[in-house]
Design a protein around this nucleic acid. Structure first.
Length: 474
RNA sequence: GGCGGCAUAGCCAAGUGGUAAGGCAGCGGACUGCAAAUCCGUUAUUCUCCGGUUCAAAUCCGGAUGCCGCCUCCA
């Protein structure tokens, strides 16, 4: 069983083989920290979180680098609007990004470098490119000369000629070619700047990733990831910079995740339909968000809708109900997650270019198998098999970053959250429920049903179980 | 104008040559005072359409139609 993954560079699935046996080096483009993170950032983070987790599960030591872009036009503009400095602004959004991603159970990468901490390396790579004739200086700006890099366009599958025919690029007469891009930008008033051989200035966008990946992972590394929109120009430019500077292959496997649409529409500033992670987590359980994001293959677009989220939330309940049922009926899980066979089938899906949708299918099969076993006469053998399958569910969940909560705590948490959202005191509900229970005991069905109707109107659902009545938000 | 992707049940979605996973909703059953919740069962002779290759195709090839993305900052 070998991991295969789709390589954007070659446009096909390839068997994954790291440069150094047993060790994987991975770089993913992180956010530009000038605003709150949205569901698209969450998808990218969750997708590569799965890659990170699964590679480790497969026994690799993984060095995972994800950067913060903390100097850039958007940050400068936003900081000026708010009359604060760029660093303070970045700090706010880095903290917020961490809070959001922690809430989503996204593991912290091994390293999280910031562009402004690598100015020295950025200048070093830029100088090398100038030296080698791949870059030129104009009025304190330094531009990469795309014509000097013969394979420019190989990642995105474009030719310079074709793109220029499209002609939607601004022509800058100082550039040799419209597609030449800035490595270094001369200082303008009100902008942060650093000393450089070309005068005071700041780095262009693309160069930071070349510099930081080189510094932390070397001239060639295994996996580079990011959103599909970064393929061109950002990643194309990274390839050009790094390979022109160091004269060897930059990245061995390129992985790109698809977009998140909102109600079938692309998220965009103009449509004003950005959904922030915070807004979503206000409404849905973090694991439901992960379940939603992972229920479709990472390279396909995924459509965020209220209905899809509710379905994910229902699915999450189903799994937790199952885990709770195991704990209640047989008291615990088995240690051996391999026996039931679900785990190996799960891995086969994950090995196939991280097919999380297929993998989730296996997980839900395990849930059904457990329920079937527990529906039987519970002979010792069935109980053991149920706990084995249950162990597999938790194990699979671990790779997906889900089902890590105690089931009782999960349902209790949901109830508290719901009561809070409904704006009433749980004690009052408990009181009504107690009254109804008494009425039921007296076989006073009229009163019992009246109370139930009253609770229903409040949005509270009643569940009569053999151990008594419990309630939750409908 | 250039490049690329997608089209599988009511909805979402796996499946890349061997005879259609899974989820949600629906329906039937168990359970219940009746319900709800939960659990079980069940729902595509067929994979947008038309040709072709093959003993065999949702899967490969050619064509048509429809939808979408990128080529400009963007996860």
């Amino acid at each position: 069983m070998a991991l295969t993954l789709y390589n954007t560079l070659t446009r096909q699935k390839e068997t994954f083989k790291p440069l150094k046996p047993g060790h994987v080096s991975m770089y993913v483009c992180g956010p530009t920290v000038y605003d709150s993170s949205h569901i698209g950032h969450a998808r990218s983070a969750v997708v590569f979180d799965i890659v990170f987790r699964y590679l480790q599960e497969a026994g690799y030591k993984v060095t995972y680098v994800r950067n913060f872009t903390d100097v850039d036009d958007k940050i400068i503009n936003r900081a000026n609007e708010r009359d604060m400095d760029c660093q303070a602004l970045s700090e706010i959004y880095i903290d917020e990004f961490h809070r959001d991603m922690d809430a989503l159970a996204v593991l912290r990468p091994t390293l999280e470098p910031r562009a402004t901490e690598f100015i020295k390396e950025i200048i070093e790579v830029t100088a090398k490119l100038v030296e080698k004739g791949h870059a030129y200086v104009v009025d304190g700006d330094v531009y990469f000369d795309v014509r000097s890099f013969a394979s420019y366009g190989k990642l995105s599958g474009r030719k310079l000629e074709d793109m220029e025919a499209g002609a939607r690029v601004k022509v800058d007469s100082r550039k040799k070619d419209p597609f030449d891009f800035a490595l270094w930008k001369a200082k303008k008033p009100g902008e942060p700047a650093w000393e450089s051989p070309w005068g005071e200035g700041r780095p262009g966008w693309h160069i930071e990733c070349s510099a930081m990946s080189w510094s932390r992972l070397g001239e060639t590394f295994d996996i580079h990831g990011g959103g599909q929109d970064l393929i061109f120009p950002h990643h194309e430019n990274e390839v050009a910079q790094s390979e022109a500077a160091f004269g060897q292959q930059f990245v061995r496997y390129w992985m790109h995740n698809g977009f998140v649409n909102i109600d079938s529409e692309k998220m965009s500033k103009s449509l004003n339909n950005f959904l922030t992670v915070k807004e979503i987590l206000d409404q849905f359980h973090p694991e439901a968000v992960r379940l939603f994001l992972l229920s479709k293959h990472y390279r396909s677009p995924v459509d965020f809708t209220e209905q899809a989220m509710k379905e994910a939330a229902s699915g999450l309940d189903r799994v937790y109900s199952c885990l709770q049922r195991i704990l209640e009926t047989v008291g615990g899980l088995d240690d051996d997650f391999q026996i039931s066979g679900h785990w190996s089938r799960f891995c086969a899906c994950m090995d196939d270019d991280f097919n999380t949708a297929g993998a989730l299918g296996i997980l839900f099969e395990a849930v059904r198998d457990v329920n079937r076993l527990l529906d039987g006469d519970l002979t010792g053998d069935d109980q053991v098999r149920a706990t084995e399958a249950g162990a597999a569910i938790v194990k699979m969940g671990g790779v997906l970053g889900m089902f890590q909560e105690d089931p009782d705590a999960y349902f209790e948490g949901k109830k508290e959250q719901a009561a809070q959202d409904g704006g009433f005191d749980p004690a009052m509900v408990d009181d009504l429920v107690a009254k109804r229970s008494q009425a039921r005991k007296d076989k006073d069905w009229g009163t019992a049903d009246a109370i139930r109707d009253q609770l229903t109107e409040m949005g509270v659902a009643i569940e009569d179980t053999p151990d008594g009545t419990i309630w939750k938000m409908a």
